[in-house]
Each structure stands twice: as C-alpha cells, then as structure tokens.
Amino acid sequence: MSRTMLFVQRELAGSLRARWFLAYSAVFLAGGLLLATFGMGDITVYGFRGFAKAFTGLVHLALLFVPLMALFPAAAAIAEDRESGALEYVLAQPVTFGEVYAGKLGGVSLAVLLSMTLGFGAAGAVAVLRGVPPGLVAILYAFVVLLALVFVALGLCFSTIAGSRARAVTFGILVWLVLVALGTLGVMVAFVRWGLPEQLLVTWSFLNPVEAFRMGVVSALDADLSLLGPVGARVAARFGAAGTATLSGLSLAAWVALPGLIGWRLFRAHG
C-alpha cells in the first residue's frame, strides 16, 4: 500500500472516530429523513405533486450542515497535528509533503463523502419513493458532494495557515458565515442602497460556492429559473438549465481546486 493511502486511512479513521462527526452525521441523516418523509404533502393534484418546499428544505439542510461537517475535520487535520507535535514527527519520516497533504485531503474527503452518502442515500430513497424524480435527488447529491469538497479544501487550507486548530476552525466558521449568509445579505443591502448592476448579483451567485450550489440545484428543479425572478430567468435564457448547472459545478470545482492547491503550496513552504 502506498504511503499516501496509509495517510488517507489514518485520516479517514480519525474523522470517523470523532464523536462530533458522528453526531453531525446522525443529525444530518435524521433531518434528511424527516424532511423527505414529512416535508412533502400526500396530495396529488391532477397527477402533479409538489416537492419544491421539501427540496428547498433539503438544500437548506445541506447548506447548514455540509460545510460545517467538512470544515471541522479538515480544519483540524494539519493544525491539530502541528499542535501535538505529531506533524513534526511524521515529516521527519521518509515521506513527502505531498503524500501527507494528499492523505489528509483524501481521508477527510472520504469521511465526509461517507456521511453524505449515508444521509442523502436514506433521505433520497424516501424522497424517491414519495415521488421526487430520482435524477433530481442524484443531482442534489452530486452538488452536495461538490459543496462538501469545497469546504474540505477550504478547511485544510485554513489548517495549513492557522497556528492552532481553534484558530483554523474559527476562521473556517467565519468564512462559512460570510459565504452562507452574511456575504449575500451584504450584496442585497448594497443592491438596495446603491443599486448594484444585475451582473454583479449574477457574478456573486456563481462566484460564491454556496450560492453556486443553490443555483445548480435550483436549475435542476426549475429549468427556466423562474423561481429566481427576472434575473434568474435571464440567466436561464442565456445559459440554459444545463449551462447554469455546469457553470455552478465549475465554480464549485474551482473552489475545490484553488484552496486545495494554495493549501498544498503553503504546507510545502511552511510545513
């Protein structure tokens, strides 16, 4: 087995042993199941069923839980080892910075993916049984995985920069708050106060990974994005539903790659 895989195993097992991680996974699973079971009414109207609200609930659940589930183990991954001196010990062995970094990235990512698969698999099964199109659940799952990887990469990057685990986690939570709510609230306030051009709203929606996630899943739910008002409809008219989802996916992928790369370079420079 390669040394990288050994580090992956160690990190994966460490994350899965953490009680808070299991607790988060359990809450995520329970929340998903509750939403899928009770979020959708049993009423079928002329063959039409509504699941926009339940779907929105799942999206919000993902936005609240997934980033934090990914941030905590990732933020701890390097900073904690540095604090305990384990990192110094490990790097004194015949291993490369790249193997250690890749192992930590892979291990935390796998742990988060397992948790996502458990939660979304169970909630998705119920949702599909209750009439939600399987493709929609699959797309939501794919975007959730991407979102989780974004916050794993961000967390690991912070873990590399921060002097301690606490600092890395605090910084991660601040960034999460900005991306999830404060940033968008700021953009909304700026729009109301100064009348920002629409293009800036659209740019923010694709540049912010949390909003990009929302754009991606809403485009799967509502192809013409009429749920997102006239600007949303213009986005759909310009890019189409598939184009919007692809742009969102690319934005998320960039948010995985860039912090991952920056973190690795910093780790190599200061590790």
Binding site: L64, L185, M188, F191, L201, S205, L228, G229, P230
Partner: peptide, 21 residues
C-alpha cells in the same frame, strides 16, 4: 417583502440569506 420591492433580488430566493432575514 424585500424581494417584491427589489425584483432582481429574487435571484436570492430560497437562499439561506433570505431565510435569515
């Protein structure tokens, strides 16, 4: 109320920011 008064902000419909409001 806010989104109705400023329609372009409907772009943030279903966002956590809107729920936070």
């Amino acid at each position: 109320d806010l989104l109705a008064k400023h329609e372009p902000l409907l772009l943030f419909n279903l966002s956590l920011a809107a729920s936070t409001l």
